[in-house]
Nucleic acid binder design. Structure first.
Lengths: 184, 184
DNA sequence: TATATGCTTGAGCGATCGTTCAAGTAAAGC
DNA sequence: GCTTTACTTGAACGATCGCTCAAGCATATA
């Protein structure tokens, strides 16, 4: 999965996959069917893990809004560590897929919408709990947060990012919390 | 340029370029040297145009901060229109480039830093003019804005984005202006 | 031990990649 | 009209792409 994540769909050759899985082409095709199917399962795995991480952070937090802020701060800490790739795999897939790979694009979009729906539910819960003003639209807040996270992760890909990422994620988290404080 | 922008470096084949320029391979190589050099000049052209657009918007605005807010709103309007590609070409290049294309990655990063420097100068000017609080760091604000713009443009790539983009850019622009209003 | 079964192997398929270069074409100078 | 010069052409190169399949291997069953 990490291979596809870092190099993308078209950028990963079967040679790379053979080496990573220590399998020969025949076995790979017997097990996964095609490069595209293998990529899609990698994409699904990525999305599931992301969703799990988010829901765990949300459930551990004292409130939905703090949960979202925690999520952003955790992300910032993760992105400050040196890893192969930082940017969101769904975003990378969406950006690299052309028309003849529309299936992948659509799949990535769908999964991204699921994440955004989780954000929306959290904002909705925060509003129901009176933590944020009633005139705030959870859908709009969710797309804003989605966009901020995409931006943060894309920015993190820059080689000079490590020193700025924690400030960035802290700013985003503070803005989330400010939704509550401006209401008191 | 648009071809490279939409499909990326590796995703654009010489066949595509031949068709787009109505030139045969020999002429292309005589004129540009290599696919990589052609891509780099496309990247440079893109960055120059972006920079020009930004500086024009800034110079037309009543104040640096309003200039930045205008820039974001203009971007939102542009992204709401149906175009081939929305996401920033520098970001796409940064994300798709692997280690064997490090030259492209570095070039894209450099150009992105120039944009960010322009943001920083505008924030600095706003602070010097007393428009934003003195304890605000222009560098930090600039990286935040850079990240927000990257996020906005990546989000705009989604097929269901058109309806949300203007809200998103409006939210970002308001947050910029709030740097001033919270100071009054 | 002989046979059947399921999995792995890697040579090789046709297609496409970026790139080159001998040959062809067109305009300029004499 | 002939030569020179500058530019264009497209066939073809080696490399690599995703993928296939006859052959080989190892284990289970008889």
């Amino acid at each position: 999965m990490i291979l596809f994540w870092t190099r993308g769909y078209a950028g990963t050759s079967l040679k790379d996959i053979e080496a990573a899985l220590d399998m020969r082409p025949g076995s790979i095709y017997a097990a996964f069917g095609s490069k595209e199917k293998l990529f899609r399962s990698a994409l699904t795995l990525y999305a599931e893990r992301s969703r799990t991480a988010l829901s765990e952070t949300l459930s551990e937090a004292a409130s939905p809004l703090e949960g979202l802020a925690d999520h952003v701060r955790k992300l910032g800490r993760a992105l400050a560590a040196p890893t192969q790739t930082k940017a969101c795999m769904l975003m990378k897939t969406m950006l690299e897929s052309s028309d003849n790979e529309r299936v992948l694009r659509d799949a990535a979009e769908d999964m991204m919408r699921q994440t955004e729906a989780a954000f929306r539910d959290a904002f909705q819960a925060a509003r129901d709990a009176g933590q944020i003003p009633a005139d705030r639209d959870p859908v709009r807040l969710a797309s804003r947060l989605q966009s901020e996270v995409l931006g943060l992760r894309a920015y993190a890909q820059r080689s000079d990012a490590p020193g700025r990422i924690e400030d960035l994620s802290e700013d985003i988290a503070r803005d989330l919390e400010a939704l509550a404080t401006c209401f008191r």
